[in-house]
Simulated scan of single mutants.
Amino acid sequence: MAGRRFVVEADGGSRGNPGPAGYGAVVRDGDTGRIIAEAAEFIGHATNNVAEYKGLIAGLKAARDLDPDASVDVRMDSKLVVEQMSGRWKIKHPDMQPLAAEARTVLPRGQVKYTWIPRERNKDADRLANEAMDAGKAGRQWEPKAPKAAAAVVEEPPLETAAPKAGWAGDADLGTPTTFVLLRHGETHLTPEKRFSGSGGTDPELSEKGRWQAERAAEALAARGSVQAVVASPMLRTRQTAETVAARFGLDVRYEDGLREVDFGAWEGLTFGEVQERHPEDLTAWLGSAKARPTGGGESFTTLTHRVGVARDKVLARYPGKTVLVVSHVSPIKTLVRLALGAPPDALYRMELSAASLCAVQYYADGNASVRLLNDTGHLR
């Protein structure tokens, strides 16, 4: 039986570097984002880097104790630790070498991957590290807070799985970026009527025009000759579009469930006007908040953002430095673009994304992203 998926966020700090030091780590459920374990400790006099490594080890051990077969995505704001543990930088400092070796023994290497995140996305681990240092200053060790009685169930993922904001990387050699060429599927019979068509509806196939659009996209991409892998949503219209393009390159299609369209609940198959007439209050709430769900138990954009972010990270880990064709739907593609831009959730409503259009995003080794193309339909003219 396959293990669970965890996200480990870890951090460490030293007041003086070296100085009084401590670490903190959290383990999140990989599907919901909910924190399911915490660890922190005051470690005495040490450097920031030593504290960061000890935080990493504690987070990995906490994940292992929950499920030794789990796949773990480690996210840290220490570029040094991420690059060293990913094998891209050598570990020269004698204090770091045994710590890195210990971290590698906690879980099998194939179960763990490392991702850099900006400090503002590592607040929980940073908070715990500071609590540990405060406890050490008071002459005691950190202790976890008592759980609140009848704690409420978190229904939405609490974290924004966004790519870090793009920026200049100075003179660092970041290597070849990973490029996502984002292709929206061709038309179905619902597309010209502008009807809600998500993952909770009838899963329509491509129309005759949609098949023609897929062929034109395949021709345009083949002319560029740059696609090295194809990943797609498992829905019928995206499968048909992806297989048309993949055949031109002699590639197989890998399907990723996180790239499927949002579930529109009771709105599936309806036009915007019909939803406005039948469910006006729900529609207003949905347009006003990324946490609101369509009528009838559909998905919120917050939930969509989480699963798309997880899918993005999986593809980046599998195809570093490659050009990957990602065949998906309006909402997931807009979400990938939004996250790359660091734009707010309501930016989804400010993008046009035509059937069989192309976008492109590049992701760099330091975690930065750059949008290179948006809604290109030149191949359809």
Rank of each mutant, 00 (worst) to 15 (best):
A2R: 15
F6I: 03
F6L: 04
P18Q: 05
P20Q: 14
A25Q: 00
V27G: 01
R28K: 14
F42E: 13
A46G: 04
N48G: 03
N49S: 07
A51T: 06
G55K: 07
L56H: 02
A58T: 03
K61C: 02
A63C: 02
R64S: 03
R64P: 00
P68F: 06
P68L: 05
V74R: 06
V81K: 04
V82Q: 00
Q84Y: 06
I91Y: 02
K92L: 04
D95M: 10
Q97Y: 01
E102T: 13
A103K: 04
R104E: 14
G110I: 06
Y114N: 10
I117M: 11
R119N: 03
D124M: 12
D124Q: 14
N130P: 11
N130D: 13
G136I: 08
W142V: 09
P144V: 00
P147Q: 09
A150F: 14
A151D: 12
E155I: 09
L159Y: 13
D171Y: 09
A172Q: 12
L174V: 07
L174G: 05
G175H: 04
T178Q: 01
L182E: 08
G186E: 07
T188A: 02
T188E: 10
E193W: 12
T202Q: 12
R211G: 13
W212M: 15
Q213A: 11
A214P: 14
E215M: 11
L221I: 03
R224K: 15
G225C: 01
Q228S: 09
V230Q: 01
A232N: 08
P234S: 05
R239P: 04
T241E: 05
V245P: 09
F249C: 09
L251Y: 08
D252S: 14
G265Q: 01
W267L: 04
W267D: 02
L270H: 10
F272E: 12
G273M: 02
E277Q: 15
R278G: 03
E281K: 14
T284W: 12
T284F: 10
A290F: 08
A292V: 02
R293S: 12
P294R: 02
P294M: 07
P294D: 01
G296Y: 03
T303G: 15
T305N: 15
Y319F: 14
Y319D: 07
G321F: 00
T323V: 10
L325S: 05
L325I: 00
V327T: 03
S328R: 03
V330D: 15
T335Q: 15
A340G: 12
A340N: 04
L348R: 13
M351R: 11
E352H: 15
L353D: 10
Q362C: 07
Y363P: 01
Y364M: 07
L374E: 10
N375I: 00
G378F: 09
G378L: 12
H379K: 01
